[in-house]
Amino acid sequence: MFEAKMLQSSVLKKIIESLKDLFSDANFDCSSSGITLQDMDSSHVALCYLKLRSDEEGFEDYRCDRNITLGVNLVLMSKILKCAGNDDVITLRAEDEPNILTFIFDSKNGERVSKYDIKLMEIDSELLGIPDTEYSCVVKMPSHEFQRICSNLSQLGDSVTVDCHKEGVDFKVAGEQGSGAIKLKQNTTVDKEEDQVSVELNEAVTQSFALKFLCAFTKATSLSDTVSLSLTQDTPIVVEYPIAQHGYLRFYLAPKIEE
């Protein structure tokens, strides 16, 4: 038996909304330690990795007697989650050898209980081993700032060059009709931590990435006030949104490499 009771349905709604356009079918791997999801987009350029820890406060109850994989169509899941109120408590439930995933939405005042079942799918996806490495550069910034940068620069071109150096980070785009550049200076003196821009630098990095994917990742902006970008030359960028009281959502994007 698997049963996970999440205090805020809005968290799961935001996660699925941010994934469903790039990652349409995905396996939720459930174990006693929590729920993980790893999936590649259809072109195998981007990868997402979600981790929701069972021992964090976001789960009121969590039970998973044996490891199970729940193959779900995320577009369908998003439709089901739209039936939940933002303040509803949501329970996910499945048997040990499941064909069905059950969603139970309890309203805050206890007057409304909704139950939806969806059929599970057999999804043949290969898990990739993501090495736990140290990156040359980690930039932390307000998540809405990163969203704005991606949105602004995507008006002019398809790829952004991210240039991390000791003063800060530069984002540049060069298209056929024009070019643009946004310079963010390190700023760790502002009062609120979530408004700070910080750059941890071991080595400078200059790398290009497809804006289409970065813009898609920023659909997760409402999950977190901050986002971190981890870069090493000639390796995928990691865009991480912490999820309070649950864990994190990470996106990996393969770089564009000079031919």
């Binding site: 898990l127 393969a254 564009k256």
Partner: peptide, 14 residues
């Protein structure tokens, strides 16, 4: 021109 890399080039299949 830049060539788009593939994520499977960087992370091995388990």
């Amino acid at each position: 021109t830049n060539k788009q890399g593939n994520i499977t080039e960087f992370f091995r299949k388990q």
